[in-house]
């Protein structure tokens, strides 16, 4: 039997290793080198607390996009969120974007409830939004209403 050469062993190791590094970076962290095509939409929220860049955008529980950037709109003092949506998914101008939490302590994501109007195009705004609901607020509201 011919002995496996040193170069082959090292080569295999490097190829295998680089592949796993790439897989980790691309698939796991959602660092999209192979960025899917898509279009951008914006939405303004009264409160986007807990929402992060890269958070998932869902319709009916299916991922259709992600959060690109979160900034403060200085005019309205609202949170301006840009999202990226897959090309093949249509979102209508009367759709509602709401910030939700996966479970009680899970990550925040944007849930879109579709409407029946005209489809939005790149750069358009989803007008109707629901802010993120913070548990603290809910609890304090509940306690407050009990006292009164």
């Amino acid at each position: 039997m011919k002995k496996i050469s040193l170069e082959l062993i090292v080569g295999l190791f490097i190829v295998f290793g680089t592949a796993s590094i790439l897989y980790l970076s691309v698939a796991v962290s959602g660092l999209s080198i192979f960025e899917a095509d898509g279009y951008h939409l914006k939405a303004k929220f009264e409160n986007s607390s807990g929402l992060k860049k890269g958070a998932v955008v869902e319709i009916a529980g299916v991922k259709i996009g992600q959060v690109e950037s979160i900034n403060l709109d200085t005019d309205t003092q609202e949170s301006l969120v840009w999202i990226k949506v897959q090309t093949n998914v249509e979102i209508q101008d009367d759709a509602v974007a709401s910030i939700r939490t996966a479970g009680i302590i899970g990550d925040k994501f944007i849930k879109i409830s579709t409407g029946g109007g005209d489809p939005l195009e790149d750069g358009d705004e989803i007008i109707e939004t629901e802010p993120s609901i913070s548990i603290e607020e809910l609890i304090s509201k509940y306690m407050f209403s009990n006292e009164s």
Binding site: L24, S29, G30, L31, V56, G106
Partner: peptide, 12 residues
């Protein structure tokens, strides 16, 4: 899905 959401570039 949760892995994808939770692991960020800074973790890597």
């Amino acid at each position: 899905q949760t892995i994808e959401n939770s692991i960020t570039w800074s973790d890597l």
